[in-house]
Structures are given as C-alpha cells and as structure tokens.
C-alpha cells in the first residue's frame, strides 16, 4: 500500500481488506431448493451456518472463495438460535478470525455473504442495538442478539458480521425474525457450535412448572436474608414432572436455582441450560413464607 493515501482511501482499503480476509472463510452453503445461503468456516473442517437454510443433511455442496468445492454433512442444529454445524468432507480453506471483544452499539460492521459463485458480497453499517434475552418460538430463549443497519441481502443468512478488521462479531440470520435479520453474537454462536459439534444438539433443561412473577413482601425478603424484589409463584406443577418428583408444590414461590436468584420467568429459562440436564439441582423456594431448598433432577425439554 502506498504511504501517501489520505485517511479516507486508507479506510476504504481497510474495509476492502476486511471483506476479503473474512470473505475467504465465508462459504456458500447449498442445502435448500431456493438460492444458496452462507456459512462460516470457524473450526478446522467445521462450518457454522443458519439452521433454517439446511433442508437436507448429507451431500451439501460448500464452496470457498478460492473456488475450492467440497461437500458437507449436518452435525447438529439448534432451532432456538437458528444455528447449525456442518462437517466438511475436506478442510478446504482458511478459518475466520474471531474478535476478542463483543460488538458495541455504533461500531462499524460489514455483513458478508456468499450466495453465488460471483464472489463475496458485503454491506456496510453499524451495530444499531444489542438486545436480549428474548423468548423465541418453541420456548427457546435467545440470551443476546445484535441488530445492525447493514442490508441483509438474499442468501446472507449464515454469513458473518465482521468488524473493520474482518474479525467475526456474530452470525447473521433472517430465520428468527420474519422480514428482518438479526445477528447471533459470536460468544453465543461459538458456544452453541461447540455443543452441537459434541452432542449434535443443544439440550435445554425442563422443570415442568408454570409460573408468574410476584413481588416479594418485606417479610419474605427478610426470611431470605437478601434484597430480592420478586420470585416466581408456581401456578402449575405438571404431574410426574421433574418439579413434582422433587417435591415442588402449587403455591410455592421459586426464588433461586443452582445457587442463583430467580426473579422472572426468562431468567429461569436462561438458567435451565443443557448442563443442568440430569443433574440434581438445588431449587430454593418460599413455602408459607419460609425459605426451603429442595433437590430437583432437571429433565430435558423435548
């Protein structure tokens, strides 16, 4: 690069470099009838992509920017985060680099996709908001997501959102929010990917209760010995469920799980991650105004 570039030209070059660098690890994934989608080569031989674009499980054509073509098979999928992991038959290209930091509102970003053989495609924008947790269709909980004003061109699902250095900040998908696109942050996406690569699916814990948040009176807070504003009143305990087997009853107020306080249903859902499945877990409740800790073996949400 020549030394006498003005800051604008230098910046423009840097953006093109970022698109090119991250673009080399952004692949075309052809696993649906309509146009192909995109994916990211994130670990040797493994591609992270958008679950909703994967309509078949074997012999999925994958194309790298170098022109290298291979096929892949599905390792696992997680509808709640709309992520899927594919295994390449041949490791055929560079890996994408991951940003050490989480995306911040206002940060300049590029959305990349490779929906055709015509080269990498890109759109520039900023991170507009950082949201979550939000409950998705089917009961899953998306802990965190990013929104950007980049244009989600057709076939961009499964492609990366990268920073100005071409380091990935998240995976774009339009499969969770019809008519718009959001980005699964890299930290979440990588942890889902790791679970998928190991277990083929993301397990989610299940208690078998219905609840509503209630304010805790001063006496209850005193009994608990902490300033907790609310808990979850159990308004239903399914027969034979993990909760019932563990002794939870209608009218109990759930205030803690596995040593963490629980103040609202989303928090509970967030805590019921796959790692708790099958584990004997401490459930802290208020019964008759008195704190009580029961042991519940968390089930798996089917």
């Amino acid at each position: 690069m020549s030394e006498n570039l003005n800051p604008l030209m230098a910046f423009s070059n840097a953006l093109a470099d970022a698109a090119s660098k991250a673009g080399d690890a952004t692949v075309l994934v052809s696993a649906r009838r309509r146009m192909p989608a995109s994916g990211v080569h994130y670990a040797p031989g493994l591609v992270l992509t958008a679950n909703h674009t994967i309509e078949r499980e074997e012999g999925i054509p994958v194309l790298f920017g170098s022109g290298a073509q291979t096929t892949a098979s599905l390792v696992g999928r997680d509808p709640a985060s709309d992520l899927a992991v594919l295994r390449l038959e041949q490791a055929a290209g560079p890996l994408i680099g991951r940003s050490a930091q989480d995306g911040r509102v206002g940060q300049l970003v590029l959305s990349l996709g490779r929906p055709s053989e015509g080269g990498i495609e890109a759109s520039l924008g900023v991170i507009s908001s950082v949201g979550g947790p939000v409950r998705m269709h089917g009961g899953g909980l998306l802990e965190r997501f990013l929104r950007t004003d980049t244009i989600p061109y057709p076939g961009f699902s499964g492609g990366p959102l990268v920073d100005a250095e071409g380091l990935v900040l998240g995976i774009n998908t339009s499969g969770l929010t019809p008519g718009s696109s959001l980005t699964i942050p890299a930290s979440l996406a990588w942890s889902v990917a790791e679970t998928l690569a190991q277990h083929g699916k993301v397990r989610r814990g299940f208690l078998g209760v219905r609840s509503q948040p209630v304010e805790l009176p001063a006496s209850a807070r005193q009994a608990l010995g902490r300033e907790q504003a609310s808990g979850l009143l159990l308004v239903g305990v399914d027969e034979g469920s993990p909760a019932a087997q563990g002794g939870l009853m209608l009218g109990d107020v759930l205030v803690g799980l596995a040593g963490q306080t629980v103040e609202d249903p989303d928090a509970l859902l967030g805590m019921l991650s796959g790692s708790l499945v099958g584990a004997s877990t401490a459930v802290e409740i208020l019964r008759g105004g008195q704190p009580l800790t029961l042991s519940v073996v968390v089930g798996e949400r089917k």
């Binding site: 423009s12 970022a18 090119s20």
Partner: peptide, 8 residues
Amino acid sequence: AAVRTGEL
C-alpha cells in the same frame, strides 16, 4: 481490479 468488494 477496478474496484474491490468492501471499498467505500
């Protein structure tokens, strides 16, 4: 190339 994808 006359232009690069990603340039301003």
